[in-house]
C-alpha cells in the first residue's frame, strides 16, 4: 500500500508548498478518482470494493485538505513535525482579540440594521482578505522553517482558524437572511 503512505502533495504530484495550483489540483483529483473510485469496481468482489472505498476516501480527504488554505496550512505544519491541536485554541495577542471582539459585535448587530445583506457581504470580504493575509504571513514563517518561525506559523494558523469560523457564521447568517 505504498501510495497511501505518500504525503498528500506527492499523491497529487504537486510541489510541497503553501500555494497550490487549484486547476492542476482539480484535474489530478479527477484523474485519481477515475482510477480508484468504487464505481470502477461495482461488479467486482466485496474485498475489492472495500479496498477501493479506502483509496477513494483517502483521495477525497487529500483533495479537501489541499484545496482550502486552513487545512492546507495545518497539514504543512504536520509535515514539519508539528501536530497542532486546534481544539485547544487560545490566543493571547491582545490586538488580535480586540479585533475579533469588534468583528463579532458587528456580526451580532447585523440583523438589527436596515440593509443587512450589504453588511454581511462587506464583513465576508473583510474576513476573506484577512484569511488571505494570514496565509501570506504563514508562508513567510513556514518557508524559513526555523523553530521560532514555526512557532509563529502556528500562531498565525490559530488566528486563521478564528477567521474561518467567522466566515462560516457569516455564511450561515447570509442563508438565514436569504430565507426570510
Amino acid at each position: 500500500m505504498v501510495d497511501l503512505t505518500k504525503n498528500y502533495f506527492e499523491l497529487f504530484e504537486l510541489p510541497v508548498s503553501c500555494q497550490v495550483d487549484q486547476q492542476r489540483l482539480s484535474s489530478q483529483y479527477r484523474a485519481l478518482q477515475r482510477a480508484v473510485h468504487p464505481d470502477r469496481f461495482a461488479g467486482g468482489d466485496e474485498r475489492q470494493q472495500r479496498l477501493s472505498i479506502q483509496y477513494a476516501s483517502h483521495v477525497n480527504e487529500a483533495f479537501n485538505t489541499l484545496k482550502q488554505p486552513l487545512p492546507r496550512a495545518i497539514y504543512l505544519l504536520k509535515l514539519a513535525g508539528r501536530d497542532v491541536d486546534m481544539e485547544r485554541n487560545a490566543i493571547m495577542d491582545p490586538g488580535f482579540l480586540m479585533e475579533q471582539m469588534e468583528l463579532r459585535e458587528a456580526v451580532a448587530e447585523i440583523k438589527s440594521i436596515s440593509k443587512p445583506e450589504q453588511e454581511v457581504e462587506r464583513l465576508a470580504n473583510q474576513v476573506d482578505a484577512d484569511i488571505h493575509r494570514y496565509l501570506q504571513q504563514f508562508e513567510g514563517f513556514w518557508v524559513s522553517g526555523a523553530e521560532q518561525d514555526l512557532d509563529q506559523a502556528e500562531t498565525v494558523v490559530r488566528k486563521m482558524q478564528f477567521m474561518v469560523k467567522l466566515a462560516a457564521e457569516l455564511e450561515q447568517l447570509e442563508s438565514e437572511l436569504l430565507d426570510e
Partner: peptide, 12 residues
Amino acid sequence: MNQGIRQALSGQ
C-alpha cells in the same frame, strides 16, 4: 490500485 494511480497521473 497503485499502478492505476500512477497511470492515471501519467495520462494526465
